[in-house]
Nucleic acid binder design. Structure first.
Lengths: 206, 206
DNA sequence: GCCATTACGCTACGGGTCGTAGCGGAAAGC
DNA sequence: GCTTTCCGCTACGACCCGTAGCGTAATGGC
């Protein structure tokens, strides 16, 4: 969050309700207007606060939308379906459903685009969204290692981290590219084909 | 292109030099200013044309940047290095180098973001960039099938198209996610790890 | 209960971009 | 030379940005 009010500070504390109202209003505005037509004045009006209040808490549109979108990703869960393939299928379908929501579609790619010229913003995205969701990969790999479906984690911690990063980039990248660039649905059929490639490789028989 | 002047039309034809100058100026402006601070007035000044000329040819910033970026992707080539893995490595490294150029980084994701609320724009991206570059996957698969590295193309044309789409989404998605979201370089080490997963699957021994 | 301190709503403002309209002149084909 | 289209230029209203200033509201400390 942007406005963790330190405990022992004098004066009137910031309204936590305002925070929630602003982030919800941001998501609603993303749905109705999309990124480019979203204005902070509009968000403030929807949330029932003054525009200046918004500027006191967030530096601008970018930071606001990152926080508004990041909350959505915490809904993701890794189901335990008994096999690695089934677990991945479960979480990937959830991810695809998330990317189907308009507040996510239009917000996520826009802030990523902005982050290419704004290092603090990129860091905010990394810590608020990307790193947080690597928990899914970590848990999935741990379960699969227990079941013997994947080799155990490497001794070398750096090596293990690289593997997790690679897995995350491949899975998230493929789903994002499928839904947002190719513009086709990541439905069950597609997810099954993808998981076959992911687990067995391109050369595997279909 | 946006301004194919029909041959037998009377009157003064549109200046092809202006087209080239505008697209080059757009890329230069993307390098120096990035997407969000890029204005059509600025591009027009750089290109030495009037702002109104720009609006006569492109509907807006989105369409202009798509055309400016699309030209970059036509530079990609599939080298023949003797094996599927080596071929992929060659083209992926070129792709990574492309995504390292600031005019590409800031422009590409921004128009993808806009396209989530603008179907004609999405179609323009698909035809001008995505579909054009599937030639690389097609050629790579054909070579690999000749060499016996991959099973031959399925009889069913739809099935074959799905496989090509999947391969494209996985490869392009992973590289884009690695460079633009995770913000780490897609260098030789990473590309080799990626290709191992792509060809052999996650369960393959490292 | 009073006071210092901070948050909040409101208004107003300069600065910038957008996208369009209208004009006179330039460059092509016939 | 005529028509047709393109081009450069200027000007314009509309909108959004981000900030400043003010009076008021809500806390915690004493």
């Amino acid at each position: 969050m942007q406005s963790r009010t330190p405990a022992g500070r004098p004066g009137r504390p910031r309204s936590a309700a305002a925070d929630a109202a602003i982030l919800a209003a941001t998501r609603q505005a993303l749905v109705e207007l999309g990124w480019s037509k979203l204005t902070l004045q509009d968000v403030a009006t929807r949330a029932g606060v003054a525009k200046t209040t918004l500027y006191r808490r967030w530096a601008g549109k970018n930071e606001l939308v990152v926080d508004a979108v990041a909350e959505l990703f915490d809904e993701l869960r890794l189901p335990d379906r008994g096999s690695l393939a089934a677990d991945i299928e479960g979480v990937v379908l959830q991810f695809a459903a998330l990317l189907d929501r308009p507040e996510c579609r239009s917000g996520l790619m826009a802030v990523v685009a902005e982050s290419t010229r704004d290092d603090p913003l990129r860091e905010r995205i990394r810590t608020s969204i990307v790193e947080r969701q690597k928990r899914l990969v970590l848990e999935g790999r741990a379960r699969a290692a227990e079941r013997g479906e994947l080799p155990p984690e490497p001794e070398d911690a750096e090596e293990a981290a690289r593997t997790v990063d690679l897995t995350f980039d491949v899975v998230a990248g493929a789903v994002v590219h499928r839904t947002l660039v190719s513009g086709k649905p990541a439905d069950e059929d597609w997810v099954r084909s993808f998981i076959r490639v992911l687990l067995l490789g391109l050369a595997a028989p279909s």
